[in-house]
Amino acid sequence: MKEMSRYIGILISAVLWLLPFSDIYAAKGDKKDSRKGVDTTSFYYTEPKSVYGFYVDVDLVDPLRSVFSSNRSGFNVSAGLDINHTFMPAVEVGFADIDASEDYSYAVVEVPQSHVYRVSGTYFKVGADFNLLNKKPYRTISPMGYLGFRYVISPYKYEVKDYVVVDAFRGDGKRFSAEGDVLAQWGEVVAGLKTPVFRYLCVGLELHYKTFLHCQKKESFVDDARRIVKQSYAPGFGDFNDGVWGFRYTISYFFHL
């Protein structure tokens, strides 16, 4: 899996290296922001306006992961409004189904082969991006290098099945199974690049730093015994231990208004 990931990484890196040759740079007259020198016959020409259009992005990372790993599947789409090529309010929605039981490799006790820890659900993100690159008001679309933030909420289902609680000193044990719904919330700092490659078709890369994670603990009573289920995965976040950094590689389309 790691080898495959490496090849995907190299492939995508190669595509990214080609970004500077993308369609937008080939257009004439895009060197200056002033009216002077603007090519009014360009496909990208427009009068300056406050709202230029909106992007619809589809993330390729989750579907690619689904192809190479049977333990997870998911998708992620987002939309962002281009205001002045500067400010971009964004919403994002995704779904993920993660079977995390394979990660059970350093357990203190032996567990049955049938054990399962699975999380499945949607996540919703709202936030905004700020473009740091040169703004070109006479262009319908502008390459973006941006910083942003997201607030994420994820209501999801979990299933814990056939784990074992043991009293190792006395040799007692019993199986532990539980399922239910929980809510996770967190914040993300986003840094990304997005550029047109052909007309309004764009590719982009986003890095996410996830922080301020809060996830409900589920408490119940079974046979008079208090029972707590802590979560270690959430859709959209991944593993709480090492899912702090995330990334999206997006194909998007810009709808010019």
Binding site: A100, S101, D103, Y104, S105, Y106, A107, V108, V109, V111, Y117, V160, Y163, V164, V165, D167, F176, A178, V222, A225, R226, R227, I228, V229, K230, S232, Y233, D239, F240, N241
Partner: peptide
């Protein structure tokens, strides 16, 4: 004492 059964994480499993 009162006991609590706890599912800690996928990596850790359960504890009391």
């Amino acid at each position: 004492h009162k006991n609590t059964e706890e599912f800690v994480s996928a990596e850790c499993g359960c504890r009391i």
